[in-house]
Design a protein around this nucleic acid. Structure first.
Lengths: 220, 220
DNA sequence: GTCAAAATTTAGGTAAGACTAAATTATTTT
DNA sequence: AAAATAATTTAGTCTTACCTAAATTTTGAC
């Protein structure tokens, strides 16, 4: 059954917040959905009472997705990430600009539209930020990336993904540290966990705050 | 101020229904909006009481747009027609398939998005059906097309636009009678107003039901 | 000009999904 | 373990835009 925009947003954010294993708390949901906590309680209760249930919910314990809810969440996520990829590639949006537009479009496009852009893009597996795109049958692929912070001197890697924080995004864009770029670690300081990395001809020293938010594929 | 999807739909349809000069009647609006007449009355009253008012409304007399309402309607129409053009040109949608998808997208795209697709398409003035696209400053261009039914033997013309009736659309698509195609009138029957037209190597005899719904630019 | 049919409006309801304020439960500090 | 604080839920409203049923107005036929 077709879900409302609001329902889709709740499911998407419950998915993202509970990826770490912990249920999504009422307060966290309220924050990301820009809604008051009392509203979240009401909505989450409603979603738990649908048949089939979309979320698993126990008072004061937060919310997790049922298999049905998870499918619906991955559908929205697939829409979102395909749309971002497509807006960047066909309309010249920058890497940082696409989020808001995709946020609105993700709720209204048809399955046909989804198939068409996926095909037009050559069925990509990651969006411009490097986030994995759920498969057409709505499974989330295994993420085999490692955090840049785990590398040490001498290792080379290719950037797969960066965290979606807008400020960080802009900063990394300026430095040229974007998905697809190859880098080498040339130094490591055990005291502050700073890494020195070399990209093309340039070197940067990056702190843990940044290196934990860049994900790479290490060269064997 | 940003209008709701519902408001945008009302304005768009009031615009279309009142193009002939007559106000849009409650019943006609109910029919095209797929809503009960009582709901139309309520909504139209609401739109007339906004400040600034979007529609002009007198009980039992139907609705027309105020200048403010007309701008809003043309904005939606511009979105719709740009989207149709774009879906056809970039995603391989057929001429007949795009309407429904554009109907949903038109309400959610940003002004930035509108500018980007207009630019990507080379600022087109007509959509795939040949309908005029409102200008960026939201004026409807003058339509200088003539009805095919007004032509007589010997005249040549290029198809600019065909009526948006889905059945007719499919029929004309099969015959190859689409915007951009050049044709010549080779015969006219005063009794039934049938026209014989020749397109490339083929000839067709078309009745008034069809010829009044094809609009052309006549060669001088 | 009257009367029936068609069109329109009024009145009263419903469903989503948000909000505020107040009450309750959990957690942390001492 | 009691008190203070934080998180969550309940209860009651509000808005938007739809609905049905009943009442009214307009129109068209005679």
């Amino acid at each position: 059954m077709k879900k409302s925009t609001s329902t889709q947003d709740y499911l998407k954010h419950i998915y993202e917040l509970s990826e770490g294993g912990e249920p999504a708390s009422t307060n966290d949901l309220a924050r990301v959905l820009k809604v008051k906590p009392a509203s979240v309680t009401g909505m989450v209760q409603k979603l738990a009472n649908e048949k089939p249930a979309l979320v698993e919910y126990q008072k004061h314990q937060g919310a997790t997705l049922t298999p049905v809810g998870k499918k619906a969440a991955l559908e929205v996520l697939r829409h979102h990430r395909l749309l971002e990829t497509w807006l960047v590639q066909t309309l010249g949006y920058s890497w940082a600009e696409v989020h808001e537009e995709a946020e609105k479009l993700e709720h209204v496009i048809s399955e046909d539209f989804e198939r068409r852009i996926a095909a037009a893009l050559g069925n990509p597996t990651r969006d411009p930020h490097g986030e994995l795109i759920p498969t057409p049958d709505l499974k989330m692929p295994q993420d085999d990336s490692a955090s840049l912070s785990s590398l040490r001197s001498g290792q080379s890697a290719t950037i797969l993904r960066v965290n979606e924080d807008p400020n960080l995004l802009r900063h990394l864009d300026e430095l040229g540290l974007i998905p697809g770029i190859r880098l080498m670690v040339t130094g490591y300081s055990p005291l502050d966990n700073n890494l020195t990395i070399k990209v093309e001809k340039k070197s940067f020293v990056l702190g843990l705050n940044i290196t934990t938010k860049i994900f790479v594929e290490v060269e064997k």
